[in-house]
Protein backbone atom coordinates (compact mmCIF):
# COMPACT_ATOMS: atom_id res chain seq x y z
CA UNK A 1 0.00 0.00 0.00
CA UNK A 2 1.89 3.06 -1.20
CA UNK A 3 0.88 6.70 -1.45
CA UNK A 4 2.20 8.54 -4.49
CA UNK A 5 2.50 12.27 -3.85
CA UNK A 6 2.71 14.09 -7.16
CA UNK A 7 5.08 17.07 -7.22
CA UNK A 8 4.48 19.76 -9.82
CA UNK A 9 6.72 22.80 -10.15
CA UNK A 10 5.16 25.09 -7.55
CA UNK A 11 3.61 22.40 -5.33
CA UNK A 12 3.83 23.55 -1.71
CA UNK A 13 2.13 20.95 0.40
CA UNK A 14 3.87 17.81 -0.89
CA UNK A 15 6.13 17.61 2.16
CA UNK A 16 3.21 18.26 4.52
CA UNK A 17 1.27 15.32 3.06
CA UNK A 18 4.39 13.14 3.19
CA UNK A 19 4.81 14.06 6.87
CA UNK A 20 1.29 12.89 7.75
CA UNK A 21 1.36 9.77 5.60
CA UNK A 22 4.90 8.74 6.51
CA UNK A 23 5.66 10.12 9.97
CA UNK A 24 2.23 10.36 11.58
CA UNK A 25 0.67 7.24 10.04
CA UNK A 26 3.78 5.23 9.23
CA UNK A 27 2.60 4.37 5.73
CA UNK A 28 4.86 3.93 2.71
CA UNK A 29 4.91 6.79 0.24
CA UNK A 30 7.00 8.27 -2.52
CA UNK A 31 7.12 11.51 -4.42
CA UNK A 32 6.14 11.30 -8.08
CA UNK A 33 7.79 14.03 -10.17
CA UNK A 34 5.35 15.48 -12.67
CA UNK A 35 7.48 14.38 -15.62
CA UNK A 36 7.18 10.73 -14.65
CA UNK A 37 4.74 8.69 -16.66
CA UNK A 38 4.28 5.62 -14.51
CA UNK A 39 2.38 5.13 -11.29
CA UNK A 40 3.51 1.55 -10.93
CA UNK A 41 3.22 0.43 -7.34
CA UNK A 42 1.14 3.41 -6.29
CA UNK A 43 -2.21 2.65 -4.65
CA UNK A 44 -3.39 6.13 -3.76
CA UNK A 45 -2.45 9.21 -5.78
CA UNK A 46 -2.31 12.49 -3.88
CA UNK A 47 -2.25 15.79 -5.78
CA UNK A 48 -1.08 18.18 -3.05
CA UNK A 49 -1.76 21.85 -2.52
CA UNK A 50 0.35 24.73 -3.68
CA UNK A 51 0.62 26.97 -6.69
CA UNK A 52 1.53 24.63 -9.54
CA UNK A 53 3.06 26.75 -12.29
CA UNK A 54 2.42 29.81 -10.15
CA UNK A 55 -1.32 29.63 -10.88
CA UNK A 56 -0.44 31.16 -14.25
CA UNK A 57 -3.43 31.27 -16.57
CA UNK A 58 -5.69 29.58 -14.01
CA UNK A 59 -4.96 27.41 -10.98
CA UNK A 60 -4.28 23.91 -12.25
CA UNK A 61 -4.65 24.85 -15.90
CA UNK A 62 -1.02 24.11 -16.79
CA UNK A 63 -0.35 21.28 -14.36
CA UNK A 64 -3.09 19.23 -15.91
CA UNK A 65 -0.93 18.91 -19.03
CA UNK A 66 2.00 17.48 -17.06
CA UNK A 67 3.01 14.03 -18.36
CA UNK A 68 2.02 12.31 -15.12
CA UNK A 69 -1.60 13.42 -15.53
CA UNK A 70 -2.28 10.84 -18.25
CA UNK A 71 -1.30 8.13 -15.80
CA UNK A 72 -3.38 9.75 -13.08
CA UNK A 73 -6.39 9.69 -15.40
CA UNK A 74 -5.78 6.00 -16.18
CA UNK A 75 -5.33 5.24 -12.48
CA UNK A 76 -8.62 6.99 -11.70
CA UNK A 77 -10.45 5.33 -14.57
CA UNK A 78 -9.29 1.96 -13.27
CA UNK A 79 -10.85 2.77 -9.90
CA UNK A 80 -7.60 3.77 -8.19
CA UNK A 81 -7.93 6.15 -5.25
CA UNK A 82 -7.11 9.72 -6.22
CA UNK A 83 -7.31 12.71 -3.90
CA UNK A 84 -6.65 16.34 -4.77
CA UNK A 85 -6.18 18.84 -1.96
CA UNK A 86 -6.57 22.57 -2.63
CA UNK A 87 -4.47 23.13 -5.75
CA UNK A 88 -4.70 19.37 -6.31
CA UNK A 89 -8.50 19.74 -6.38
CA UNK A 90 -8.09 22.55 -8.91
CA UNK A 91 -5.91 20.29 -11.06
CA UNK A 92 -8.51 17.52 -10.88
CA UNK A 93 -11.33 19.76 -12.13
CA UNK A 94 -9.09 21.23 -14.83
CA UNK A 95 -8.23 17.69 -15.90
CA UNK A 96 -11.93 16.81 -16.04
CA UNK A 97 -11.55 14.08 -13.42
CA UNK A 98 -14.07 15.92 -11.27
CA UNK A 99 -16.96 18.10 -12.47
CA UNK A 100 -17.12 21.87 -12.12
CA UNK A 101 -14.60 24.64 -11.69
CA UNK A 102 -12.95 26.57 -8.89
CA UNK A 103 -13.27 30.32 -9.26
CA UNK A 104 -11.77 33.28 -7.45
CA UNK A 105 -13.09 33.63 -3.90
CA UNK A 106 -16.16 35.78 -3.63
CA UNK A 107 -14.25 38.31 -1.47
CA UNK A 108 -11.55 38.48 -4.20
CA UNK A 109 -9.00 37.81 -1.49
CA UNK A 110 -6.99 34.86 -0.28
CA UNK A 111 -8.52 33.28 2.82
CA UNK A 112 -6.59 31.41 5.48
CA UNK A 113 -8.31 30.15 8.62
CA UNK A 114 -10.24 27.29 10.13
CA UNK A 115 -13.64 26.30 8.76
CA UNK A 116 -16.34 23.96 9.98
CA UNK A 117 -17.82 21.52 7.49
CA UNK A 118 -20.46 18.82 7.58
CA UNK A 119 -19.62 15.39 6.25
CA UNK A 120 -22.35 14.84 3.66
CA UNK A 121 -21.10 11.47 2.52
CA UNK A 122 -19.44 9.04 4.88
CA UNK A 123 -19.64 6.23 2.35
CA UNK A 124 -16.68 7.17 0.18
CA UNK A 125 -13.26 5.51 0.53
CA UNK A 126 -12.00 8.88 1.81
CA UNK A 127 -14.57 9.53 4.54
CA UNK A 128 -15.56 6.23 6.08
CA UNK A 129 -13.92 7.16 9.38
CA UNK A 130 -16.44 9.96 9.84
CA UNK A 131 -20.09 9.75 10.83
CA UNK A 132 -22.64 11.04 8.32
CA UNK A 133 -23.51 14.61 9.27
CA UNK A 134 -20.46 14.96 11.52
CA UNK A 135 -19.10 18.49 11.76
CA UNK A 136 -15.35 18.58 11.13
CA UNK A 137 -12.94 21.52 11.42
CA UNK A 138 -10.03 22.03 9.04
CA UNK A 139 -7.80 24.88 7.81
CA UNK A 140 -8.34 26.47 4.44
CA UNK A 141 -5.75 28.53 2.56
CA UNK A 142 -6.77 29.51 -0.94
CA UNK A 143 -7.63 32.38 -3.24
CA UNK A 144 -9.56 30.35 -5.80
CA UNK A 145 -11.89 28.03 -3.94
CA UNK A 146 -15.35 29.07 -5.07
CA UNK A 147 -16.84 25.90 -6.43
CA UNK A 148 -19.03 26.31 -9.47
CA UNK A 149 -20.83 23.83 -11.66
CA UNK A 150 -23.46 24.41 -14.33
CA UNK A 151 -25.91 21.88 -12.90
CA UNK A 152 -26.72 21.19 -9.28
CA UNK A 153 -23.60 20.00 -7.48
CA UNK A 154 -23.74 16.25 -7.03
CA UNK A 155 -21.69 13.83 -4.98
CA UNK A 156 -20.95 16.51 -2.42
CA UNK A 157 -18.77 15.02 0.31
CA UNK A 158 -17.98 18.06 2.47
CA UNK A 159 -20.08 21.20 2.85
CA UNK A 160 -19.05 24.42 4.62
CA UNK A 161 -21.10 25.44 7.63
CA UNK A 162 -20.21 29.11 7.01
CA UNK A 163 -19.35 29.45 3.35
CA UNK A 164 -15.93 31.20 3.28
CA UNK A 165 -15.59 31.70 -0.47
CA UNK A 166 -19.03 31.76 -2.07
CA UNK A 167 -18.96 28.16 -3.26
CA UNK A 168 -22.12 26.99 -4.96
CA UNK A 169 -24.05 24.88 -2.48
CA UNK A 170 -21.31 25.64 0.05
CA UNK A 171 -19.32 22.81 -1.51
CA UNK A 172 -15.97 22.20 0.19
CA UNK A 173 -15.27 18.79 -1.32
CA UNK A 174 -16.75 16.53 -3.98
CA UNK A 175 -16.20 13.06 -5.32
CA UNK A 176 -16.77 11.58 -8.75
CA UNK A 177 -19.84 9.42 -9.13
CA UNK A 178 -17.87 6.25 -8.62
CA UNK A 179 -16.41 7.66 -5.42
CA UNK A 180 -12.74 6.91 -6.08
CA UNK A 181 -11.72 10.46 -6.99
CA UNK A 182 -12.04 13.10 -4.30
CA UNK A 183 -11.19 16.79 -4.31
CA UNK A 184 -11.39 19.24 -1.43
CA UNK A 185 -10.25 22.80 -0.76
CA UNK A 186 -9.43 22.42 2.97
CA UNK A 187 -6.14 20.91 4.06
CA UNK A 188 -6.57 17.67 6.03
CA UNK A 189 -2.77 17.36 6.26
CA UNK A 190 -2.69 20.56 8.32
CA UNK A 191 -4.98 19.11 10.99
CA UNK A 192 -3.74 15.61 11.56
CA UNK A 193 -1.78 16.27 14.75
CA UNK A 194 -3.04 17.67 18.06
CA UNK A 195 -0.17 20.17 18.21
CA UNK A 196 -1.59 21.91 15.15
CA UNK A 197 -4.95 22.57 16.77
CA UNK A 198 -7.04 19.63 15.60
CA UNK A 199 -7.00 16.14 14.15
CA UNK A 200 -10.15 16.15 12.06
CA UNK A 201 -8.06 15.69 8.90
CA UNK A 202 -6.70 12.39 10.05
CA UNK A 203 -10.00 10.68 9.27
CA UNK A 204 -9.41 11.16 5.56
CA UNK A 205 -5.96 9.57 5.58
CA UNK A 206 -7.11 6.78 7.90
CA UNK A 207 -10.10 6.10 5.67
CA UNK A 208 -7.75 5.70 2.72
CA UNK A 209 -5.42 3.42 4.67
CA UNK A 210 -8.34 1.23 5.73
CA UNK A 211 -9.76 1.11 2.23
CA UNK A 212 -6.42 0.03 0.80
CA UNK A 213 -5.83 -2.50 3.55
CA UNK A 214 -9.26 -3.97 2.89
CA UNK A 215 -8.66 -4.10 -0.84
CA UNK A 216 -5.64 -6.34 -0.49
Amino acid sequence: MTFGIVVFPGSNCDADVAHVVGTVLGQPWRYVWHLETSLAGIDCVVLPGGFSYGDHLRPGAIARFSPIMESVARHAAAGGLTIGICNGFQVLVEAGLLPGALLRNEALEFRCGWVDMTVERADTPFTRMYRPGQVVRMPIAHGDGRYFVTDEPTDVVLRYVDNPNGSMGAVAGIANHRGNVFGLMPHPERCSELDLGGIDGLGIFRSIVRELAGAR
Binding site: E109, C112, R190, L196
Partner: peptide, 16 residues
Amino acid sequence: VYRQYDHTVQTNTLVA
Protein backbone atom coordinates in the same frame (compact mmCIF):
# COMPACT_ATOMS: atom_id res chain seq x y z
CA VAL B 1 -4.80 41.11 7.33
CA TYR B 2 -3.49 37.72 8.42
CA ARG B 3 -6.45 35.79 7.00
CA GLN B 4 -4.98 36.83 3.62
CA TYR B 5 -1.68 35.16 4.54
CA ASP B 6 -1.21 31.42 4.48
CA HIS B 7 0.05 30.92 8.03
CA THR B 8 -0.48 27.17 8.30
CA VAL B 9 1.48 25.77 5.33
CA GLN B 10 4.50 23.60 6.24
CA THR B 11 2.45 22.38 9.26
CA ASN B 12 4.68 23.86 11.94
CA THR B 13 2.54 26.71 13.23
CA LEU B 14 1.73 25.96 16.87
CA VAL B 15 0.76 29.50 17.83
CA ALA B 16 -0.84 31.30 14.93
